[in-house]
């Protein structure tokens, strides 16, 4: 390697690191304020105010929580498998966080614009299951063990439904590259795939809620029976890492939904025809509006819907979502051949 190419390589790496730092800071701020947003939304839905004490309208509450968790004692149960117990939250958080690299926030802002982006997201999100399972196993506690088992069975079940629900989008876009999927939607008649792929969209939304272990599918964490599920033995900052991972995973699911079904950073052409001035708004604004609408939906169903039983959860996944998703693939293919 000559010095010239070496310097060029160094600059490339530096640019990548800066980009990652920007995305990381956005991601962490998102987590901080997603918790605040959640508590406020659910508070108001239950006719209370939510956090109000720290800062104006409780705006500094997330930082108070973060600082508290950072200074808490880090307990490691005597019987735990120490090394695995140490690593599990890091694996869980990192596997959620790395997925931020594949999300196209705008037409020119994406960290890794690879041609198998969608597949890579599934692959890396799959590593998160290891974090869940080994934390449940290593804790050597009954609640954590049952929670880990339930959660990993749930996540792998809904992963299939989610994978199948996106095949319709792949057929229509002819690509796994997330940027190209958005471009294909921009040029299609409907402007976003949520309209022709309504079946896939509904399946994806249900599976996304189940994948991130949120209500009404939060069986692994069922407070009333398992206390907190797989992370019951975790305290302090290790618990915070699980929390971070869960909220970043929610952000990833919302972004994936936005990119694959809601047109990413673009607006449908018919909206632009009626309101042409909207095209001057930067794409990232639309992207974030769509993502936060989806996250609001997460909170909304959390405040509205009661929890499922475990047998109901499994039969929804296996007996309804998977056959419907398979039928959706065949119908999409047939329609594409006939047109």
């Amino acid at each position: 390697m000559t010095p010239d190419t070496f310097i060029k390589f160094g600059i490339d790496v530096l640019i990548i690191v800066i980009k990652i730092a920007v995305v990381l800071v956005i991601g962490l701020l998102h987590v901080a304020y997603a918790t605040y947003f959640e508590r406020k939304v659910i508070g108001h839905m239950q006719v209370r105010l939510g956090p109000m004490r720290v800062g104006p309208h409780g705006l500094l509450q997330p930082f108070a929580d973060g600082i508290k968790l950072f200074f808490k004692e880090d307990l490691i149960p005597e019987k735990a498998d120490k090394v695995v117990f140490y690593l599990a939250p890091v694996i869980f958080m990192a596997s959620a966080m790395v997925n931020l690299a594949f999300i196209p926030f705008s037409h020119n802002f994406i960290i890794a614009d690879i041609n198998i982006g969608l597949l890579f997201i599934f692959a890396i999100a799959g590593i998160g299951v290891y974090g869940i399972f080994i934390s449940g196993w290593a804790s050597n506690s009954k609640y954590a063990f049952i929670g880990g088992l339930r959660s990993s069975a749930q996540v792998i079940s809904y992963e299939i439904a989610m994978g199948f629900s996106l095949v319709g989008v792949m057929i229509m876009a002819g690509s796994l590259n997330l940027t190209e999927i958005v471009r294909a939607q921009e040029n299609s008649i409907f402007g976003m795939y949520a309209i022709p792929q309504i079946v896939g969209f509904v399946i994806f939304v249900i599976a996304a809620v189940a994948e991130t272990n949120r209500t009404p599918f939060d069986l692994p964490e069922a407070e009333s029976e398992l206390v907190a599920g797989y992370f019951v033995e975790y305290t302090g900052f290790r618990f915070a890492l699980f929390f971070l991972g869960e909220y970043i995973a929610m952000f990833i699911m919302a972004s994936l939904c936005t990119v694959c079904f809601l047109g990413g950073w673009t607006l449908p052409w018919y909206v632009l025809k009626v309101l042409p001035f909207l095209q001057h708004v930067p794409g990232i604004v639309w992207f974030l509006i769509k993502v936060y609408a989806f996250i609001f939906f997460y909170y909304w169903i959390r405040a509205t819907v009661p929890r499922y039983r475990y047998d109901q959860l499994m039969s929804i996944g296996w007996k309804i979502l998977i056959p419907v998703a398979l039928a959706n693939i065949l119908v999409t293919g047939l329609v594409k051949i006939l047109l």
């Binding site: 790496v13 990548i16 990652i20 890091v90 958080m93 990192a94 690299a101 890794a112």
Partner: peptide, 22 residues
Amino acid sequence: YLPILIFIIIATAFGLGALLLG
């Protein structure tokens, strides 16, 4: 694929680093 490798390193370092600092 280089950015992904760097991202994996940074994300892991973030988790481990925060724990060590704490």
